[in-house]
Design a protein around this nucleic acid. Structure first.
Lengths: 241, 241
DNA sequence: CGAGCTGTTGACATTGCTCAAATTTCGTGG
DNA sequence: CCACGAAATTTGAGCAATGTCAACAGCTCG
């Protein structure tokens, strides 16, 4: 809501070459020699917490990569009910288009920095560098697999299983290698975001956190900090497929 | 379960040139001159109603296009709960892979004929014909948008809205142009399939059909035949976004 | 004609939602 | 640094939508 940080289209010095998330992003498929060409067509934008990046059905000109911060993607019903379809983190891609309009809305959860590219420039890039197209196809395949996993969660899991699966998903992302026995998570999104992601109400999410804490499956030093002292026990309770 | 029709790998005479769903499938991006090359790497397989096409997590060698019939894609939890992630019809693509294994299971709903291609052959084709890669990227984008729409349905719609949205989805596909005022639908899948697609129980699906019929929103000449006498009224009730 | 599915209907149980209030957290200004 | 107000979170009580269990009906295939 405060737009103190809304310095749209302000080009940031941070070159692609030094980009810390390049290896996780679409740009991983651009070889070192062509990073200059990439740099010429990207710009950076910053968003304050809560600020809208784009709305569903808005005409789509740009695609984005998250450089910093957390983003929520969502779809709305006419009466305001909201479904969050994904949380994005640095390195993730957004800007899926359906006939020149965005297929979902996107908002900054915390302070967000995006790397932006005009869709027309992206298309030229794709023509020149087929490897980037492969990379995009791989990324959308992963996204699709994640979406199907989420359908399983939304359609068939209990509130308790939903919350546990969500925590495990965050834990696995943070750990990357799942060798650790325990994990400490930071949840930048609100209970309301979590509820709309899991198809629950905020009250049910809150109650579920409380009862998991009482059971000793998790610890809650604060509302946004969750500790999983025993990941295996959480996995067993989450009805992992 | 009867595998009378399981004549795997039996090559069918029906050439790509005469394929009735080519324009809707991945193959639409193959130009006429290269259809011969396509034909050399595809084969056909037939499946009886209920027969498994592949299981989730099975090693993936082939990708498929549906030539005929209806297919269900699903994911399972350890205790047997099932989420159907999509119903496929002629022209649709299946065989999404995640690290060389299928990301979901697939079964024939009725008599199904598939057009099959080894993944290694597909990859060669992609190298030779970049347009096919574009086509695949477009198709997975559409699939992703559909998956997000389904998340909205699963997470945020009531049983009644879910059933109505499902009927509208089928109606829109059948009509293609949404100019008609009414529609007659054929539902090849069972109530159990519909329930597992919508995140409901068969009883709730059945009760919802009955009450929609009592309200006059739909007509049910038989369990698999649904008539929507007034599509606009259905849209209004479905909480269309 | 009877067995076995699939679908429908009924009675009841339960999960998760709604509404409401208490509590905690956090930013702002004095 | 502390006080205040707004917002987010938690907790409580009651309820409604949907699930569970059971019986019944209708259809299909031997």
């Amino acid at each position: 809501m405060t737009d103190a940080q809304d310095r749209s289209s302000n080009t940031v010095a941070n070159a692609c070459e030094r980009c810390s998330v390049r290896h996780r992003a679409m740009c991983a498929a651009v070889d070192f020699d062509h990073l200059g060409a990439l740099e010429q067509i990207v710009s950076h934008r910053q968003f304050a917490p809560g600020q809208s990046i784009f709305d569903e059905s808005e005409p789509a000109d740009y695609v984005y990569n998250v450089s910093n911060g957390d983003v929520r993607l969502y779809k709305l019903l006419a009466d305001g009910r909201r479904q969050i379809t994904g949380f994005l983190r640095p390195g993730d891609f957004l800007g899926l288009v359906k006939q020149d309009t965005y297929a979902y809305g996107a908002e900054a959860i915390d302070a967000v920095e995006l790397c932006c590219m005009r869709i027309v420039d992206l298309e030229r890039l794709l023509r020149e560098m087929p490897a980037v197209r492969d990379r995009l196809l791989d990324m959308s395949r992963d996204e699709l697999a994640a979406a199907q996993e989420q359908m399983l969660l939304l359609g068939r899991k209990s509130a308790r299983e939903k919350v546990l699966s969500f925590l495990l998903l965050r834990a696995r992302h943070d750990l990357d290698l799942d060798e650790a026995e325990s994990a400490a998570l930071d949840l930048p999104m609100s209970r309301s975001d979590i509820a709309d992601y899991l198809g629950l109400t905020i009250e049910t999410v809150s109650r579920t956190f409380t009862s998991l804490k009482e059971e000793g499956l998790i610890d809650l030093p604060s509302a946004q900090h969750v500790v999983l002292p025993n990941i295996e026990a959480v996995e067993a309770a989450a009805s992992a497929d």
